[in-house]
Simulated assay, not measured.
Amino acid sequence: MTTETNPTLRGISSMATRQVLADLGAAFEQRTGCRVAIESVGGVDAARRVAAGEAFDVVILASDAIDRLIAAGHLRAGSRVDLVRSGVAIAVRAGAPVPDVSSEAALQQAVRNARSISYSTGPSGVALAQLFERWGMADEVRGRTVKAPPGVPVGTLVAR
């Protein structure tokens, strides 16, 4: 944090937490007078910047990325605090029928029936790719998947 009269808390985060951090940052600024500047980018980019030595007061990323940065000496050991649990969601284009995902078998069928599948480069996208592998359908869906570039919200791809 800077030491001037109006200090600034500078941070970097993945896109997954950008809205909640904006809300929390605004509340913190109002209560303390300390300016908050959190840059939300793709998690891969954020980790790369931290590893390259860019200075931040706070780094908000998935736990596995934080652990790798700590192990490599880029973040202070013992400083990790778990803040949120981020779930995985399914979204469909407005007006499109909502698929049945009430069971694993129904979800598999919904994936098979999907014209396209979009997912992030973050932990949820990695988990989804692993799920497709486990189901034996990775090759089947490969031509219909669109991985959002780092920093691009998946929802914008679905909307398009």
Score class of each variant (00 low, 15 high):
residue 1 M to E: 14
residue 2 T to C: 10
residue 3 T to C: 13
residue 4 E to Y: 07
residue 5 T to F: 05
residue 7 P to L: 00
residue 8 T to S: 04
residue 8 T to R: 02
residue 8 T to D: 12
residue 10 R to N: 13
residue 10 R to A: 13
residue 12 I to N: 02
residue 13 S to H: 00
residue 14 S to N: 10
residue 15 M to D: 13
residue 16 A to I: 02
residue 17 T to P: 05
residue 18 R to K: 08
residue 18 R to Y: 02
residue 19 Q to L: 09
residue 20 V to G: 05
residue 25 G to E: 01
residue 29 E to D: 13
residue 29 E to M: 03
residue 30 Q to H: 06
residue 35 R to W: 05
residue 40 S to Y: 01
residue 43 G to I: 03
residue 45 D to N: 15
residue 48 R to S: 15
residue 50 V to G: 04
residue 51 A to Y: 04
residue 51 A to Q: 08
residue 52 A to W: 03
residue 56 F to Y: 13
residue 57 D to A: 12
residue 58 V to H: 03
residue 60 I to V: 15
residue 63 S to V: 04
residue 64 D to S: 15
residue 64 D to T: 11
residue 65 A to L: 05
residue 67 D to F: 00
residue 68 R to Q: 15
residue 71 A to P: 13
residue 73 G to A: 08
residue 73 G to E: 05
residue 74 H to T: 06
residue 75 L to V: 04
residue 77 A to F: 00
residue 78 G to S: 07
residue 79 S to R: 03
residue 84 V to E: 11
residue 86 S to D: 10
residue 87 G to V: 02
residue 88 V to N: 13
residue 90 I to W: 01
residue 90 I to C: 14
residue 91 A to L: 11
residue 92 V to T: 09
residue 93 R to D: 14
residue 93 R to H: 09
residue 96 A to P: 10
residue 101 V to W: 00
residue 105 A to T: 10
residue 111 V to T: 09
residue 112 R to E: 14
residue 114 A to D: 12
residue 119 Y to K: 06
residue 120 S to D: 11
residue 121 T to S: 13
residue 121 T to I: 03
residue 123 P to S: 11
residue 124 S to G: 09
residue 126 V to H: 05
residue 128 L to I: 12
residue 128 L to P: 08
residue 129 A to G: 14
residue 130 Q to M: 09
residue 133 E to F: 03
residue 134 R to V: 11
residue 135 W to L: 13
residue 137 M to K: 06
residue 138 A to P: 10
residue 139 D to L: 06
residue 140 E to P: 08
residue 141 V to C: 10
residue 141 V to W: 07
residue 141 V to Q: 14
residue 145 T to L: 04
residue 146 V to C: 11
residue 146 V to A: 14
residue 148 A to M: 04
residue 150 P to L: 02
residue 152 V to E: 10
residue 154 V to H: 01
residue 154 V to G: 05
residue 155 G to Y: 03
residue 160 R to D: 14
residue 160 R to Y: 05
